Simulated scan of single mutants.
Amino acid sequence: MDTALTFNITHRLPSTLARVGVIHTPHGEIRTPAFIVGGTKATVKAITPEQIRNYGGQAVLANTYHLMLRPGADIVRAGGGLGAFMNWSGPTFTDSGGFQVFSLGIAYKKGIDAVAHTQKGNAKLAVASHNQLVRVTDEGAEFRSHIDGAKLLMTPESSMELQHTIGADIHMAFDELTAPLASHETIAAAMNRTHIWAERCLKRHSDLNAEHTERGESLQA
């Protein structure tokens, strides 16, 4: 199996930044723009891996926060990594857990959306409340599990470690997603914190890939 991850541009639209290309992963190619199927808990509901292919899905995206809780990242790794665990032979992604900072944070039980132009984008609701399940600091996000109430700290470093344990081909940096209709101050603070977290993610991600290289394992992007 090839351990490299590369992106080759195949066509450009003149006078613009638009381009299409091919992402090469250890588990196959992704031709952009791509249809990436949501498999939050390492399963795509109601369809089989064969049907994903037939419907044009090139890769599957799972969620780090949910897999951390159930069944646990170590169990996914023991099952051969994300793809083998869900019987999917193609490329895989993991989301970082950043969306849950929003959905279990300022959006929790308020019905607000991450998309500004929907009817759910009520700016008056986009503030912290006592019943939300996430508390954000510069260190990371402290979650109160929606399953059993256990406290779990996710940092940029631990998000990368979990994603490497889960074993997807491509990872997302841990971010502080906030409501698009939140105050300017809230959005600016989240953006600045996310930039700092991204640097921390990249550092830990690079260190983990160096360990993969030493062991002759596939790199992760």
Rank of each mutant, 00 (worst) to 15 (best):
R135A: 14
R135P: 06
R135W: 14
R135H: 13
R135F: 12
V136T: 14
V136W: 14
T137W: 09
T137K: 10
T137S: 14
T137M: 09
D138H: 15
D138L: 14
D138M: 12
D138R: 13
D138I: 10
D138V: 14
E139F: 12
E139H: 10
G140M: 04
G140N: 07
G140V: 05
A141S: 14
A141N: 13
E142W: 10
E142H: 10
E142S: 12
F143C: 05
F143N: 04
F143A: 01
R144V: 11
R144Y: 05
R144I: 11
R144N: 08
R144W: 02
R144C: 11
R144L: 08
S145L: 05
S145F: 08
S145M: 05
S145Q: 02
H146D: 11
H146A: 08
I147T: 11
I147M: 12
I147S: 06
I147G: 04
I147W: 03
D148V: 06
D148H: 03
D148E: 09
D148Q: 07
D148A: 04
D148F: 04
D148T: 09
G149W: 09
G149Q: 05
G149V: 05
A150T: 12
A150V: 01
A150L: 02
A150G: 01
A150P: 01
K151G: 07
K151Y: 10
K151F: 07
K151I: 07
K151R: 12
K151L: 11
K151H: 12
K151S: 11
L152I: 10
L152S: 02
L152P: 00
L153R: 03
L153A: 00
L153K: 06
M154Q: 12
T155C: 10
T155G: 10
P156M: 13
P156L: 13
P156Y: 13
P156D: 14
E157R: 15
E157W: 13
E157H: 13
S158C: 07
S158K: 11
S158D: 03
S158E: 06
S158V: 04
S158W: 01
S159V: 08
S159C: 00
S159F: 01
M160P: 00
M160G: 10
M160H: 10
M160D: 00
E161T: 09
E161H: 09
E161A: 08
E161C: 02
L162C: 04
L162V: 06
L162S: 06
L162A: 00
L162F: 01
Q163G: 01
Q163T: 08
Q163W: 06
H164T: 09
H164L: 10
H164P: 02
T165P: 01
T165C: 04
T165I: 05
T165S: 01
